[in-house]
Amino acid sequence: MKSSAIFTRAAAGALALGLSTAAFADTWRYAHEEFEGDVQDVYALAFKDYIEDNSEHTLEVYRFGELGESDDIMEQAQSGILEFVNQSPGFSGAWLPAAQIFFVPYLLPTDEQTVYEFFDESEAIHEMFPELYAEHGLELLKMYPEGEMVVTADEPVTSPAEFDNKKIRVMTNPLLSETYNAFGATPTPLPWGEVYGGLQTGVIDGQENPIFWIESGGLYEVSPNLIFTGHGWFVTASMANKEFFDSLSSDEQQMLREAADYAYGVTMEHIQGLADESLAKIQEASDEVTVTRLTDEQIQAFKERAPQVEEAYLEMTGEDGAMLLEQFKADLEAVQGN
């Protein structure tokens, strides 16, 4: 009888522990904007690994198209359907104007090491952006760069004059439209799902993306002229629904921050050399591809048009944008000084 009672109490204790664990073990959802194996997917899977290795929770990762396009997954994250979302300021710029700072051309340098150090150390990134995202119901976990922006077009371009009358696809981002207006092109907003077909049919004449995305999305097949203008980097952000994040214990919040730090480290290692690898794959796959790297003199012709985009940014964003831009430049100067 005694041993039976001990067994019963032990079994009840184990069941209670199991129920307690189950009660706190949730399945969370994370959606991003890219395909399997792309940079955001690398980040998401590293984030997932850390969470599942360090908690009882599991994380489901959804890739481009599985829950809709960028605007769809952001709406789901802000409404609480998704716990986590990854979205570029290229899309969030419509509702968070200050985030369009990444589309002021020639603000970020093209030197990889300088860019990495900037994202590691920037006060604008680590202190100012979280406050801006919080105002829209989002907890900013990490902002990170994916790669230098490369333009593809129906023919090589080396000057603003050669962009004349070219319809260049842009994200739903007012400042990016200002950039291509300044460059002499005709900016044409288009959802990502329509870009390949738009290039194929001539609805648009070109687009911009980091080179790995041009390769993985097959854009070079219908837009084979690659133009390295040196005007900026593609940047993205990993976020949590703020109400969900605030409901977690301090330990769980810390675990998620550590997961974001871990995923960031994995991702930064992944993108080193990725552009060269992607370009090599493109050139191996197609004999029609041309690569145009603008000279310093050619770049200068585009740089001379950048101030009008910066002015437009300040008009769109007011005091928030002015403060962010000032800090952004100070952070860059500090990194470049080092």
Rank of each mutant, 00 (worst) to 15 (best):
P189S: 03
V203P: 04
G202P: 00
I204R: 11
T201W: 11
Y144C: 00
L199Q: 00
E178M: 10
P187H: 06
F183N: 00
T186C: 10
L138A: 11
F183I: 02
L141F: 08
M171N: 02
T186P: 09
G206D: 04
G202W: 01
V203Y: 12
Q207N: 12
S177K: 05
E139S: 08
T188H: 13
N173K: 04
A161T: 04
Y196L: 14
K166Y: 07
V195T: 15
N165L: 12
N181M: 11
M171P: 01
L138C: 10
D205Q: 08
L199V: 01
V157F: 09
P145D: 07
L176F: 04
A182Y: 14
P145I: 06
K142I: 09
E194F: 11
Y144F: 05
L175S: 06
D205E: 09
E208V: 14
V170E: 00
M149N: 14
T152V: 14
T158R: 06
L199M: 04
A182F: 13
E194Q: 08
I204H: 10
V150H: 10
V195I: 15
K166F: 05
P156D: 08
E162Q: 15
E139R: 10
V195W: 15
G202A: 00
A182T: 01
K166I: 06
G202R: 02
Y144Q: 01
S177A: 08
N173Q: 12
D164K: 15
T201C: 08
M171D: 02
P189L: 09
D205W: 11
Y196R: 08
K166T: 08
T188P: 02
G202E: 01
E194V: 09
D205P: 00
F163W: 14
L138N: 08
T158I: 05
G206R: 03
G197K: 15
G147R: 01
Y180D: 02
Q207I: 10
T152F: 07
E194P: 05
L176A: 11
F183T: 00
Y196T: 05
Q200F: 12
E178W: 09
E155W: 02
V170A: 00
V157D: 10
E162I: 10
E148D: 08
T158K: 06
P145H: 02
M171L: 06
E208H: 15
E148Q: 12
P156E: 07
T188Q: 04
P189I: 09
T186D: 14
P156G: 07
L176K: 09
Q207C: 13
E178D: 14
V203E: 11
Y180E: 03
A182E: 02
E148M: 03
E162R: 10
L140W: 14
P156K: 11
L138I: 10
P189D: 04
D164Y: 13
I204C: 11
R169Y: 09
M171Y: 11
T186I: 07
Y196H: 14
L140D: 13
A185I: 07
G193K: 00
W192D: 13
E139L: 03
L175H: 02
E155K: 14
V157G: 11
F163I: 06
M171K: 06
N173D: 03
D154S: 02
